[in-house]
């Protein structure tokens, strides 16, 4: 995965599992741990992040020849911040309850390492098409990670999935799963599971 200029398709596929931002690069763990208590919050967070990531990657890729090396991080952060502000106000205008629930984590997308990392690694070096497909792939990977964590936490913690009751009524809610320690437990186990699967694949192919 250390090719000089990967194609758009490669960028797209890498983002989902082989270079999954959460499970493989362990970036952006703050939203992953904080807003994965239920599916709806996780999906909203994924959409917000995806919007910011795609827009920021596009803009950065378009202006990549104008970037000065010592100023590039500032330009990244300013670009990201403008789109995050858009998302923040959109959410507050059209989905106020979720905006309240997500609280400070939407503005915190500004400092989400995934987006800065993608701007640095991909968008500031490659063309717009590659940058957009990279952003979509990474967003899907981010969404996959968030939804899988939220599934565990919501099913165990409140017996529901996306608001629908799927566990029997006698299900004892695992309160711990809704608290921060539960997030770390689930996160650790999922990283372990992903590593286990990749090691199985490696053993088979070799």
């Amino acid at each position: 995965m250390s090719k000089e200029n990967p194609t758009a398709l490669e960028r797209f596929i890498w983002g989902i599992i082989p270079e999954n931002p959460i499970f493989r690069q362990v970036l952006g763990t703050c939203p992953a741990l904080a807003v994965s208590t239920d599916i709806k919050a996780a999906l909203t967070m994924t959409c917000a992040t995806a919007f910011v990531l795609i827009c920021a990657n596009t803009i950065i890729s378009l202006i990549r020849h104008l970037l000065k090396p010592h100023l590039r991080i500032v330009v990244f952060v300013l670009t990201i911040a403008s789109f995050v502000t858009i998302v923040d106000y959109l959410l507050a205008a059209f989905y106020y309850s979720m905006s309240l629930q997500l609280g400070p984590y939407v503005p915190l997308i500004i400092v989400n390492c995934i987006i800065i990392c993608r701007c640095e690694v991909c968008a500031s070096k490659q063309s717009v098409g590659v940058a957009i497909s990279d952003a979509i792939g990474q967003s899907l990977g981010f969404g996959l990670a968030l939804v899988s964590m939220a599934s565990f936490r919501e099913i165990l913690g409140s017996g529901t999935w996306c608001g629908f009751r799927i566990m029997p009524d006698s299900w004892p809610n695992w309160v711990l799963m809704l608290l921060p320690p539960g997030a770390f437990f689930v996160f650790g186990f999922l990283i372990g599971a992903v590593n286990w699967f990749t090691s199985l694949k490696k053993n088979k192919s070799s």
């Binding site: 004892p172 695992w174 320690p181």
Partner: peptide, 10 residues
């Protein structure tokens, strides 16, 4: 500790 925080009612 796990079950105590997990099942405060029980």
């Amino acid at each position: 500790a796990f079950v105590m925080i997990n099942f405060p009612v029980a």
